[in-house]
Design a protein around this nucleic acid. Structure first.
Lengths: 208, 208
DNA sequence: GTCTATAAATGGATAGAC
DNA sequence: GTCTATCCATTTATAGAC
């Protein structure tokens, strides 16, 4: 049972060998289940069932359950950083205000497109080993520093008035992250309107 | 073994009967452990060990593990509401700006004094049954409505300029909750300074 | 690479003695 | 009210066949 036989790239495979799709599929399923029920509440059997393999097969792709989690978190943090690096060039030559608007709109939109990954990255930190925690934490700090740099630049040029840019950085990110707890597409507001509403508050919060 | 015999209020007790202190102690321990490791990751045996009783004894105080969680969450939400009802009278006759400052400072201070309960109330909602979830959700909405009422009043009187008071309510609360993810007493800033820094941002964010 | 089978530990919850 | 003992389900992870 469960035997399939087909060819990929001229090489015959049997017994359900799907190395190229099973790996990503496991991560996608784990991401969704961890976000929905929490890391500790999801079993490897549950993941395997949703993927369509037996539990033992998962261990061809991850040494253990916790590595699966940390891989998801690290991948997400690297995705965020890479996406911002690509987007920040749009306002690299502009003033601090334009950079802040760019960051605000980027953050909301990017995070709304990956609610599961965001949820996990903020909720499951306590389930990481010390080493994995440090890795993720460094990546997060690196992202936060991007915002703080914009605020510092704005304060230096007199565009922003902020007592403490470190506190303001954390306050702004917390505010923006809050969108994910309530926004649902198809609701009263479009994502564009939400972006604008939050940008309006962020702009005023750091202004003079 | 583990037998103690003493008197409370003239009534002799044996075999480690501590009905009046074990209950609260179980809830205190569960609160701390759930906050630290997450509801699903904490076993009843772990709680019992920390309390100093055997696992079976816990079931004299809760019908099951989930009821223990929902009790903690409901108690917390009722505490928040009661504390705010007591504090809001200070600015009941004042303008919207003074009310908002009162709310902001109250929220930060009250929540910082109960980081475990706050953490659980926001992170473990998915582990509640549908009924218990609804109960907690209604209490939370009720608290959020307090802030929204202040914002509505300020917009009506022209003190505040906010596009959407519902969005602003959620944004402000998310921002204030963020304090708990980074603030540690004994750090660079006092709680008073943090209150003031956040109030500064909140005030500007809703201003014209 | 996946399967079946299983080891070894741990989970929530209950029964009955004291 | 607590303890000891236990039931039964479920867990992570591994071993070996195919």
């Amino acid at each position: 049972m469960n035997i399939c036989s087909y060819t990929i790239g001229g090489m015959a495979r049997t017994q359900g060998s799907h190395s190229d799709i099973t790996g990503p599929r496991i991560r996608a399923v784990a991401l969704q289940l961890f976000a929905q029920h929490g890391f500790a509440a999801v079993s490897m059997r549950q993941i395997a069932k949703e993927v369509g393999v037996q539990a033992g097969a998962l261990y061809n792709y991850t040494p253990d359950k916790q590595s699966l989690l940390s891989t998801l978190m690290e991948e997400h943090m690297r995705d965020v950083l890479a996406a911002w690096q690509a987007r920040r060039v749009e306002t690299a030559e502009a003033g601090a205000q334009a950079q802040l608007e760019n960051f605000t709109r980027f953050h909301i939109r990017f995070h709304m497109e990956r609610p599961d990954a965001v949820f996990i990255a903020y909720m499951e930190l306590r389930n990481l080993s010390e080493d994995n925690f440090m890795t993720v934490e460094v990546l997060r700090r690196s992202y936060e520093t991007e915002l703080q740099r914009i605020l510092d630049e704005g304060v230096a040029s007199g565009v922003f008035t902020v007592r403490d840019t470190k506190v303001a950085t954390l306050a702004v990110i917390a505010m923006l992250n809050g969108v994910m707890t309530w926004y649902r597409s198809g609701g009263r507001l479009s994502l564009e309107e939400v972006e604008t509403a939050y940008w309006d508050m962020v702009r005023k919060a750091v202004s003079g």
